[in-house]
Amino acid sequence: MLASLEGAVISAILVLTAMGLSIVFGVMRVVNVAHGEFFMLGAVLAWVVTTTLGGHPVFGFVAALIVVPVLVGCIAAGADRLILKRVNYDPDRTIVATIGMLYIIQQATLMTYGPEARPVEAPFNTRLSLPWFEFGDEGFQMIWPWGLSITSYKLFVIFAAIAVLIALWIVLTRTKIGLIMRATQQDSDTAQAFGVPVGKVYSWVFGLGAGLAALGAVLVVPIQQAHYLMGGDPLLLAFIVVIIGGLGSLPGTVIAALLIGMSDGIISVFFSPTLAKIIATFLVAMVLVFRPQGLLGRAPS
């Protein structure tokens, strides 16, 4: 029970980061190794914004929620213009270039922000106890023990992620922006021929992807802390989620995020935590082995 709630929180953050990567990867066909660093930048900038503004945590947090993703998005779009565009989005060169960006962002953060993990205060954080049912000596009873609890902020994260997802889904499927993006994704040459400014779209997409990662980071930073090396795990997990879910499939990405977020929590009920992680990692890999196009991806014809 607790494991699944915690899993949901992990999944919620993961899905936002993964959506960002999925859009970039889907539309531009490039592997952005620096994606995790945009996540990290989001968390670090959230700390900067909240501490500069001071005042009530809610005020700082809301400000960070608005400012930080835009800021990170602009940085990413700038990097796209400056670097990726010039390597023509060649897959190999993009990998090296984004590894270079990863080093630059990490080192710049280390030099300015420092090596410490710093907390951002949650706007609200009430501890909610949950009842627990146990079959004891006196029959079925309900107890209210230490332990089973979650904080209101963690619940908020889950709902916030759902809201963002719905918004994103509407943008992608119901608006002209989404149409342009999908057109570019399917065939950038044809899209170009029809007057879509592919170069601009790429910059926007790259910025949007980074912004989503940053948004996830702002949400997570009151739970975890901002640290200059925090980008590594989100990158890998997001990458895994995108591919497992099936490229370009929004629902697939959500399902995969839930699968990854929940799996080791649930398996760890039966095995020791590390063994659970081993099994979960292996099983998720096997999903891909037997379904190379991902859960909801279309098989190549």
């Binding site: 090296v96 270039a97 590894i99 270079g100 080093y103 990490q106 080192q107 030099m111």
Partner: peptide, 13 residues
């Protein structure tokens, strides 16, 4: 690492 990063970017260019 900053130098290494810049070098990698320049090299791809």
């Amino acid at each position: 690492l900053l130098i290494a990063g810049v070098a990698l970017v320049l090299l791809t260019l």
